[in-house]
């Protein structure tokens, strides 16, 4: 089935994520990171933006067929407990490849998180492989 490349460039709605100290603590506990900075919820671990779940238009994938290919986070400043981060996610690219496990579709999603002053906090980029 040919992939629908018309979804490239579509964005999510801007979603506001309140960074709760308790959510930081639980995330660090799940990782097994004992740092007191995280236990207090002062600063969020580097991969914390993965908790900001943002629905994208035109993308409805069966989780059982998803492989996570790669991920990148680039920070302008750390995320801190009490931040309100506005996240916009965008479909940066969609393409098809034939791989050793057969036909695969690659989705590249990019996100930007900004703070209440409108300053960029981080950018992220995900590669999702759909079998």
């Amino acid at each position: 089935m040919a992939v629908d490349r018309s979804i490239i460039g579509l964005s999510s709605e801007a979603t506001v994520n309140e960074v709760e100290r308790g959510a930081i603590r639980k995330f660090a506990e799940a990782i097994g990171d004992p740092s007191p900075v995280y236990a207090r919820g002062d600063v969020a671990p580097p991969t914390f933006p993965t908790t900001f779940r943002t629905k994208l238009p035109g993308v409805d994938l069966d989780p059982k067929r998803i492989l996570h290919g790669g991920e990148e986070f680039a920070y302008e400043r750390p995320i801190r407990g009490g931040d309100r981060i506005t996240v916009v996610r965008r479909i940066a690219d969609v393409y098809e490849r034939e791989g050793k496990v057969g036909h695969m579709t690659f989705y590249i999603f990019e996100s930007e998180g900004t703070d209440e002053q409108g300053q960029l906090v981080y950018k992220s980029r995900s590669t999702v492989i759909y079998r």
Binding site: P45, A74, Y75
Partner: peptide
């Protein structure tokens, strides 16, 4: 915790 600027993985 505040010193991580970028992390990119496959």
């Amino acid at each position: 915790a505040e010193g991580v600027k970028r992390l990119k993985v496959k």
